[in-house]
Amino acid sequence: MPFMPPKEYKTEAKPIWCPGCGDFAVLAALYQAFSALDIDPTKTVIVSGIGCSSRLPVFVKSYGFHTVHGRTLPVATGIKLANPELTVLAMGGDGDAFAIGGGHIPHAARRNVDITYIVMDNFIYGLTKGQTSPTTGSQEGTGHGFKLTPTNPHGQWEEPLNPLAMLLTYGASFVARGYSAKPKPLAEVYQAAIRHKGFSFVQVLSPCVVFNKTYDELDAAIIPLEGKHDTSDFRAAMDLAWDTQTEHLGIFYQKERPTLTDRMAAIGTKSNPEQRAGDLSKLIAKYR
C-alpha cells in the first residue's frame, strides 16, 4: 500500500461536533496514528455505538459499523472473530461504554479479543443534551466534571466509575489514558494500543464544550507518566488508577497473553481431522 499522509484518512463527511469539542483532536490523533502505522483502509473496520463520539467512523477512510447504543464490543468481537486479519477498532463515549454497554466490557477484556477500544470520556451525555453519565464527578468531589444535570437536579451523589481500575480488574491486557488537549502523546498511545496483540483499552479525556467544559479542571490534574512507570507492574498500575485526584496520562499496563484469535486457531487444529476437510456427508452418516 502506498504511504498515506494523515489527511488522506479524512472522508468528505464533515464532523457534526461542536467547535472546541475534544473529539476533533481525538480524530486528528487517529489520522496521525493510522498514517504512522500504514493502516490500510480496506483492511480496517471502526465500530462505534451511539453518542457524539460514536459518529467518528463516518469521518475516517476505512470500513465502519455504526451500531446501536452500547453494543460496540459484541459487534467488534464478531468482526475480529470472523476475520482475524482485519484491524478492528471500537469507539464510543462514556455513556455508550460504561452505562448501557458496561456488561460487555468484562467479557471483551477476559476474552482478550484483539481489538482497540477507545472511549472518549467527557463525563456527560452530550448528544442528548447534558444528562448525567457514569463518569460524571460527584458532589463529594470524586472524579471530574461534577455538575447538577437536568436528570440529577437535586444532587449528583453517585460515585463516578473509575474506568481504568475497572478495566485492570477485568483483565484487559492493555490499559492506557490520553487527553484530547495533548494530541501528540495521544497519537502515540493509539499506535501502541493498535500494535498491542490483545484487548487494548484507551480512555481519552475529551471534554464537551457545551454541557461539561472540563478543560481547566483537567489541565490542572494531568501528569504524564513519561516512562516513569513500569507498565508490566499491575499493582503499580492499579495504584495510579486509584489516584483519582490526578489524571495520569500514558500506558498504565500492558501484558501479552493468548488472544481470542489464538484460542480459536487452537480449537480449529484440535478439531476432528477426519472432518477437517469439511466432509459433511461423513458427519451426517454418523446419525444412521
Binding site: F65, T67, P74, A76, T77, G78, I79, L81
Partner: peptide, 8 residues
C-alpha cells in the same frame, strides 16, 4: 451483536 459483526 457478534453475528452482525461477523456477517458485516
Amino acid at each position: 451483536g457478534c453475528v452482525l459483526g461477523a456477517s458485516y
